[in-house]
Deep mutational scan, measured.
Amino acid sequence: YIGSKISLISKAEIRYEGILYTIDTENSTVALAKVRSFGTEDRPTDRPIPPRDEVFEYIIFRGSDIKDLTVCE
């Protein structure tokens, strides 16, 4: 799965898409590269977040912050 395009939804209901870079089982983290944030879209939340235009080089997510993770390709 390393190198695959991943769609990830955080506990804050924010969806991110990026390339799976590393999975650290010891620290329970997932790192994505070339990440875009799509905001909360239409998911119900107390704090709606708009999508962002910039592409983040890397984002490291803690396993406890991840609600859903899907391989896109």
Rank of each mutant, 00 (worst) to 15 (best):
S4A: 12
K34M: 13
K11H: 06
K11T: 14
F61T: 03
A33E: 14
L8C: 00
D68E: 07
S7I: 14
D24V: 01
N27I: 00
E73P: 14
I59Y: 05
E54T: 11
N27K: 07
I49Q: 14
Y21N: 14
I60M: 15
D65N: 10
Y58V: 12
D46W: 05
L69S: 06
Y21H: 09
G39K: 01
T29V: 11
A12M: 07
P50G: 10
R43W: 01
S7V: 12
A31T: 15
E57G: 05
T29N: 15
R47Y: 15
G39R: 11
S64R: 12
P48G: 06
T22Y: 13
D53V: 10
P50V: 02
T45M: 06
P44E: 12
V30C: 04
E57V: 00
A31V: 09
R62W: 04
C72S: 07
Y16F: 12
L20G: 06
P48C: 12
D65T: 04
K34V: 02
P48H: 15
R52F: 05
E54F: 06
F38Q: 05
G18S: 02
N27G: 14
I6W: 04
V71W: 09
I23Y: 14
D68N: 09
V35Q: 02
K11Q: 08
E13F: 06
E17K: 00
D53G: 11
T40A: 01
R62D: 15
V30S: 03
I49G: 01
I14D: 02
S28A: 14
D53K: 14
T25Y: 09
I49A: 07
V55A: 09
P48I: 15
R36C: 10
S4W: 10
T40Y: 00
P48K: 09
E41T: 04
K67W: 04
F61D: 02
I59T: 14
P48T: 07
E26Q: 09
G63R: 13
V30Q: 01
K34E: 13
S37E: 12
S4K: 12
D24N: 15
I59H: 15
I6Q: 02
R47H: 14
I14E: 06
K5A: 14
K11G: 06
A12D: 15
E54K: 15
K5C: 06
K11L: 12
R36L: 07
A33S: 14
G3D: 01
D46I: 04
T22I: 05
R62S: 14
V55L: 11
S4P: 04
L20R: 05
S10V: 05
K5P: 11
I66P: 00
D42H: 09
F61Q: 04
F38G: 03
V35E: 02
S28K: 02
I19P: 00
L69Q: 03
R52A: 09
R36A: 04
I14S: 07
I9S: 02
S64M: 06
Y16E: 00
D68A: 13
C72I: 13
K11R: 12
I60P: 10
A31E: 12
L32H: 00
T22Q: 13
G3A: 03
T25K: 13
T29R: 13
I66G: 02
R52V: 09
K67C: 02
I19F: 12
R43D: 07
E41P: 02
L8H: 01
D65Y: 02
A31F: 03
I9K: 02
V55W: 07
R47L: 11
T40E: 00
A12F: 04
K34P: 05
V71C: 10
G39Q: 00
A12E: 14
D42G: 08
R43S: 02
F61P: 01
I14R: 11
T22A: 11
Y16H: 03
I14L: 07
K5I: 10
L32F: 05
V35L: 02
E41M: 02
A31I: 12
L69D: 03
T29D: 15
L69I: 07
V55T: 11
S4N: 10
L69Y: 08
I60F: 15
T25V: 09
S10F: 00
I49R: 14
T45S: 12
E73A: 11
N27M: 09
L32M: 12
T22E: 12
R52E: 14
G3F: 14
